[in-house]
Write a protein that binds this DNA or RNA. Structure first.
Lengths: 337, 337
DNA sequence: ATACTAATCGAAACCGTTTTCGCTTGATTA
DNA sequence: TAATCAAGCGAAAACGGTTTCGATTAGTAT
């Protein structure tokens, strides 16, 4: 392995000068700097990340925290899209991405301990229980963090427009003539609450009244739970004409139930998803849904995170709203009112 | 941050002894070792990973290489399941997982350079172009690697039983009375070739002859391509009664086309997927498919990789076959022959 | 000629571990 | 008793960078 020593020898300078030249200090003449850069190039010099980190305490790597009790984390299309975008952006800026875990060398640890152990420069937090002590500790620590769809006081976050999303979706449904609109929502979280607000706002605004029993809870990303909720809804003597599902994936469960009941979409009942996954575009009929701009969310998250890593003084906490957009699909029928 | 120095001072020994005690050398009396361990515990000592790595040249982290031209990598359920399992197993053994990329500090680099830069202990390779020079260089290097669904000479690999998989699937279809069986396969790769072998083997064994035009190429994970292939097949004057699709996800495209043509599954035409994703279980009807044991693949991959990292002498290269199993679903009808 | 300044560079300390090798000490053996 | 030996421990040298601070030199002003 070639080290600064080798370059120094070849150029007849000290290791100090090599280091300075390579890191662009103003402390070395342009001529020698150039000579050193060329030598480094020729020798395929690659700095020893451990040595550098030991001295500077910067690891040039970011942690991602994806909690995964149900072990579904990475197979969740919305989150894996965020992660993918985050990874690409981090790479572009020369940072590496590492999964935060609760194990260090086989021993149990907290997230914060793990982040410190690896000297992570920053952590991207998504899909976790934001009430857990461990997560709170991490956010409260000296390590810069950014959270997805949740805001801690005085910390940056990326927020998708959940209120707007359900508002627009509901408005759209109403515009198609529907009045009996059901909403199967996920477990109650801050995100769910926002979606409920958007839902009711749209209804109120259009003076549409629905019975309470049209709003039922299932779980996100759980087709089976959604399936049961769907059955319940459709067995009412006065069933809805349109159902909004927790997300695109769990819609599959609802769709299966409808198919089994011999009901077609959108002929017999209209449907909407949420997320705007790739999948929902290739279904038949294509699902109407609200597309969260997951790619932009991941990208912006990492951009902001790196900013606060590199400019701790000037970088202010910020809530970054990412607008999504409605994806019409063909799963909502037009009915006469 | 507490260091070995602090522990040494508190216990009245040298840092050397602390290090030895903490790493379980036989060179320190049980009494002092215990004292040191307790002190470390009390002080919440956490070794400095950079210092350790600088000295030992072990990073205790593994790279994963997921090439991603189409940017679909992480959203591919099969691969993300492998990754998820790999991540869990790595965590369990105290290794961290880091994405291999082609950027180092913002500069373009090769995978090998990146792996060396981070001193990765080993690399898990999946979903890449195994013919690319960069990948070959990485495998040929001093860094232990393990590949998924492809074997390099003298290197370990995890192989799903692609021949067996398509063989069993085809046999099953035949057992249900089908004779006109079509196969939409993915682009030609070593995996695809194996699946074709299994397909033809089953046919031959059962003396079923199909016209060549029943075997068409689409692309993996591409519902649109599959959709076109499906249309082509069903427009034949003598269409197949059963279609095997490249994978579960691209099946969605085929299914959409069939629906649009007014054909029901399995009433009018039977279908099979490949992979055994969670998704295919919640479709209606549940898709018959061959379940690749992605979780076991990821787990075994990391186990073997760590083994070859920790026991470079004794650990032999190995091709590890992971058996999958047929998932019947309800998408293949029983027809009279 | 002298004093002062700015530019350029290097010696050396340091980051926190691991590891070699030699020193003690007390026990064992001839 | 003297020689041998093993166990337990520590001093010090790495590992490969970064960074401080002082030294040198050349240029400029007086």
């Amino acid at each position: 392995m070639v080290t600064v020593r080798d370059i120094a020898d070849r150029c007849g300078v000290s290791t100090a000068t090599v280091s300075k030249a390579l890191n662009g200090y103003g402390d070395v003449s342009p001529a020698t700097a150039e000579k050193i850069r060329i030598a480094a190039e020729e020798l395929h010099y690659m700095p020893n990340v451990a040595a550098r980190q030991l001295k500077t305490n910067f690891s040039h790597s970011l942690g991602v925290l994806f909690e995964d009790e149900t072990n579904v984390g990475l197979t969740h299309e919305f989150f894996s899209e965020i992660l993918n975008a985050a990874k690409n952006e981090a790479e572009r800026q020369g940072y590496d991405i590492l999964f935060l875990s609760r194990n260090i060398g086989g021993k149990r640890a907290t997230y914060l301990e793990h982040a410190r152990y690896r000297r992570l420069d920053g952590v991207l937090i998504a899909n976790v229980d934001y009430d857990s002590e461990m997560v709170k500790d991490l956010v409260a620590s000296e390590i810069p963090t950014i959270t997805i769809d949740y805001t801690f006081n005085d910390h940056s976050s990326i927020l998708s427009d959940n209120i707007e999303g359900l508002y627009e979706l509901t408005k759209y449904i109403i515009s198609q003539g529907h009045r009996k609109i059901a909403f199967i929502h996920g477990e109650i979280t801050s995100v769910t609450k926002k979606r409920l607000i958007g839902f009711y706002r749209a209804l109120t605004e259009s003076k549409v009244r629905i019975p309470d029993r049209y709003v039922v809870e299932a779980r996100y990303h759980d087709p089976q739970a959604t399936r049961e909720a769907t059955r319940k809804l459709m067995n009412y003597s006065d069933p809805p004409t349109c159902i909004i599902f927790p997300d695109d994936y769990s819609y599959l469960g609802g769709k299966a139930e409808l198919s089994e009941m011999g009901l077609s979409v959108p002929g017999d009942v209209s449907t909407c998803g949420y997320d705007g996954t790739q999948m929902c575009r290739v279904l038949y009929p294509p699902l109407a849904t609200y597309e969260q701009n997951a790619t932009e969310m991941g990208e912006r998250a990492v951009k902001k995170l790196i900013e606060s890593v590199e400019n701790p003084k000037t970088c202010r906490p910020e809530e970054i709203q990412i607008k999504g957009s409605i994806l019409m699909g063909h799963s909502v029928s037009r009915i006469r009112s």
